[in-house]
């Protein structure tokens, strides 16, 4: 599905990501974890086109077989053509616009295509109105799933924090992605909201969309992910099922910060 090979990202003299390779399989939830500053968000930004990687390749294969070399595509094309959606560590909603408008902005390309670059929409032609109704129905579907249907016409910025997190995920899903990248979706949520988030993410996976997840909440990672990649200082230190990763001494060392590298290698050997 998603294949990252030899990915390196340099900022001046700093190597934020160093020769990283991993695969995310279709229909699975892949979690990328690691201590602060391990380079997780940098990897995300490379995959979603916000950074151009210094070296390496990122190839996405659609279920239909189409292949996209993401490292060569401009940012907005990655969402529009390769259908990779993402959310952000600090929520980026269109705060002044209503919840429904947020979701419709995600349908931008479909709506523009059905309205002759937006010009026919000015005159309200039937083709455009049908497309808009379809977009509204899709939005209604996602608002029902995240339990925000009754707030559809309120400004997004007025929602409580947890609801904004869910809305950002719903907005990303409105571009009909094949791969959804979530940057710390559980940050700042209470246990009940986290539980609802788990169910939402599992539901999205079962709906056929693969997920790539950065998360600090180990409860979430262990419960829902099918495959875990552990980063430290820009390198991959472990890769496997949640149970395997949890038992890996290198991972424990990186997280607890005990001993130096020699120690870890000694234990691992």
């Amino acid at each position: 599905m998603l294949s990252v090979s030899g990915l390196t990202m340099r900022f001046g003299g700093l190597k934020a990501v160093d020769n990283l390779s991993f695969d995310a399989r279709m229909g699975e939830i892949t979690a990328v974890i690691g201590p602060n500053g391990a380079g997780k968000t940098t990897v995300f930004n490379c995959i979603t086109g916000f950074y151009k990687p210094s070296e390496g390749g990122i190839v996405l294969t659609h279920p239909g077989g189409a292949r996209f070399a993401l490292e060569r595509m401009p940012g907005h094309r990655i969402a529009a053509r390769a259908l990779v959606a993402r959310t952000f560590q600090n929520i980026r909603l269109f705060a002044g616009m209503t919840v429904l408008e947020n979701l419709l902005v995600a349908r931008h390309n479909t709506l523009m295509a059905s309205s002759g670059f937006g010009l026919l929409a000015v005159f309200g032609t039937r083709g455009y109105r049908t497309a808009e109704d379809l977009a509204r129905e899709k939005a209604r579907h996602w608002l029902e799933r995240i339990g925000l249907l009754d707030r559809a016409d309120d400004p997004a910025g007025e929602l409580p924090y947890g609801a904004q997190r869910r809305l950002e995920i719903a907005r990303a899903m409105c571009i009909d992605p094949v791969l959804l990248c979530l940057d710390e979706p559980a940050a700042g949520l209470n246990p009940r909201e986290t539980e609802a988030l788990n169910e939402l993410l599992l539901g999205i996976r079962d709906g056929g969309c693969s997920l790539l997840l950065i998360e600090h909440d180990m409860g979430v990672v262990m419960r829902i992910s099918d495959h875990v990649v552990v980063l430290d200082h820009g390198r991959k230190i472990a890769d496997g099922s949640p149970a395997e990763v949890r038992a890996d001494p290198a991972v424990i060392a990186a997280y607890l910060g005990e001993g130096d590298e020699d120690d870890v290698e000694g234990q691992a050997a």
Partner: peptide, 25 residues
């Protein structure tokens, strides 16, 4: 009220998010 107008307003609110949704900024 058209997609173009909404994209403008979205651009005003958050350009980065616009790009992540596939809008050609």
């Amino acid at each position: 009220r058209t997609p173009l107008g909404r994209a403008w307003e979205a651009l005003r609110e958050d350009e980065t998010a616009c790009r992540s949704l596939g809008i050609d900024v």
